[in-house]
Write a protein that binds this DNA or RNA. Structure first.
Length: 121
DNA sequence: TTATTGACGGGTA
DNA sequence: GTACCCGCCAATA
């Protein structure tokens, strides 16, 4: 991360968007999952779910960011291809106690962890 | 410099 | 119910 501020209006975010994303993801409890849109909405940019994906890409270098707990709104492991192996994301989720079938989280609605609700800020 | 893409989501047809 | 289009911000070509 270096020294470049790409945000033209940092005050609007109060902080770097990526850092906020990582901070939220780190708060996702084991055995739970969240979505890109939920994180984006929690941060204030409801339609910038894509940026959460980019943040995850950058988070790849961070130790405590469980990106496997972040899936798309369908509960599908859309980012599994970006893990070490095609099955790595599923294995990590199963290790968390999450059932995954056909690249999709079982009982996704039940396991869904919404920062806007759980953090309730 | 502009154009296209990307770990997405919602609204509209 | 599915399909398509637009918008978000950043990085890459």
């Amino acid at each position: 991360m270096s020294s470049k501020h790409t945000s033209k209006d940092p005050l609007a975010q109060g902080r770097h968007f990526f850092e906020d994303v990582w901070d939220v993801v780190r708060q996702v409890p084991r055995g739970r999952v969240t979505t890109y849109g939920a994180i984006a909405g929690y941060l204030g940019s409801r339609m910038s779910a894509r940026m959460v994906g980019w943040a995850m890409n950058a988070a790849h270098a961070l130790p405590d960011v469980p990106a496997q707990r972040v899936v798309n709104r369908n509960g599908m492991l859309s980012g599994k291809a970006h893990f070490g192996s095609p099955t790595r994301m599923q294995e990590l989720l199963e290790s968390d106690g999450v059932i995954v079938e056909h690249d999709q989280v079982s009982d996704f609605a039940r396991l869904f962890w919404d920062p806007a609700v759980e953090l309730a800020l």
